[in-house]
């Protein structure tokens, strides 16, 4: 755990985070300002956090903010880092991380598709990925109601006049 404390202190000194905590065993959460995310990522990569596990987003609709989450892992020390930054929900723009972690490309594309966050510098991010011919709000936003969408788009067929009828699993000849 000594190296863990060292890492925490070093990160604290270098990044000057807004908030820092250890939510779980060998895990550090660092909250930074959105404009320092890019620097923080390249600093952490130098520190040995060479693996980008996931880029994702949380929709804090009450505060009208998106929280971008970058999770990094250091294989040498075995520490996970959550790097978090809040951006404005109405104009969600973020600088891409693909120049530091090329693997971020598809995560960013996914976040764009599901939340509508734009990543400057990632040309592919605006292309559709999982969804095809999507015509509604980005689906993982909190104000999107999947139940209503499903009900309107895929209504249950009215009963009666059915082609399929029920038969038993056994032989009933």
């Amino acid at each position: 755990m000594n190296s863990m404390n060292n890492t925490i202190n070093e990160i604290k000194a270098a990044l000057k985070p807004l908030k820092m905590e250890t939510p779980a065993f060998r895990q550090i959460a660092v909250v930074v300002k959105p404009d320092t995310v890019h620097n923080a990522l390249s600093y952490l990569k130098q520190k040995g956090f060479t693996q980008l596990s996931i880029v994702t987003c949380v929709d804090w609709i009450k505060e009208s903010e998106f929280e971008l989450v970058y999770i990094l892992f250091s294989w040498t020390e075995g520490i996970h880092i959550q790097l978090r930054a809040r951006i404005d929900r109405d104009k969600p723009v973020m600088v891409t991380a693909t120049d530091i972690f090329p693997g971020a490309q598809y995560y960013e594309r996914e976040v764009h598709e599901f939340f509508g966050v734009e990543f400057t510098g990632n040309e592919d991010a605006a292309k559709p990925l999982f969804l095809e011919i999507w015509d509604d709000l980005p689906p993982l936003r909190k104000d999107f109601d999947p139940q209503a969408y499903s009900d309107s788009k895929f209504p249950m067929r009215e009963r009666g006049n059915e082609f399929v009828s029920e038969i038993g699993g056994h032989d009933d000849e």
Partner: peptide, 22 residues
Amino acid sequence: NGGIYYDSYATIGRLDKYLPVD
């Protein structure tokens, strides 16, 4: 009927609406 994904935005509900299921 959509099963466990009844309220999903991506999956359809009932298949025999679209194709004849034997």
